Amino acid sequence: MGKALYAGSFDPMTNGHLDILKRASRLFDEVVVAIGVHPAKPGLFSFEERAALIREALKGEGSAIEVISFSGLVVETAREVGADILLRGLRDATDFDYEMQMAGMNASLAPQIDTVFLPASAPSRPITATLVRQIAAMGGDVSAFVPAPVAIALKRKFA
């Protein structure tokens, strides 16, 4: 079904992200994870750390998922890697409204690239990277919300 680009900050990767990636790897021939990197907006984890955590979380999944960085328009990144699909996960109606606006703008900029939405699975709907960071920063257990390598990295980061 082509090549999909799944873009986001993944800071940190959550079980919701992992769920979308696992499902996408069954739907598309290739999936590229594009980690947004903005020099003026440093994340909790560096690009290298985020990429390593994503690769570690996907170990044993049998899927060939490429991880790259990007700092410009997502449609330009899709063009650069030869993706014909922008993949987006949806948790709720708020996500849907925002993502529909983005899909419309991206379609105006690159009509040959389609956006495909995958709904979050029920267990991952309430999970956001922001909430995970906040819980981890306050010493809470986030192991139910993130892959095991990410939980370990968060524990180290806030130790």
Rank of each mutant, 00 (worst) to 15 (best):
F47G: 04
A57V: 03
A129P: 02
I20R: 04
E49G: 03
D141T: 03
T94F: 01
A24C: 07
R91H: 06
D19P: 03
A51S: 11
K157H: 15
F47Q: 09
F28L: 07
A148F: 02
A144C: 09
G62E: 13
A57D: 10
A40H: 10
E66V: 02
N106L: 06
A51Q: 10
G139C: 10
E76A: 03
I135G: 04
K41Y: 08
V67W: 06
I54G: 04
G89R: 02
E30D: 14
V67L: 06
A159T: 08
L18R: 14
D29H: 06
L86A: 08
G60L: 02
V132R: 08
G36D: 09
E80M: 09
M100Y: 07
A151F: 05
I152S: 13
M100Q: 13
A4F: 05
A137H: 09
D19H: 04
F96M: 14
H38T: 10
R79I: 00
T94Q: 11
A129D: 09
V67I: 07
T77R: 12
I113A: 09
A52M: 04
N15L: 15
A83G: 03
D114E: 15
A120W: 01
S143D: 10
D29V: 00
P12Q: 10
G2W: 06
K41M: 08
Q134T: 12
G82P: 04
V81E: 04
K22M: 14
I35T: 05
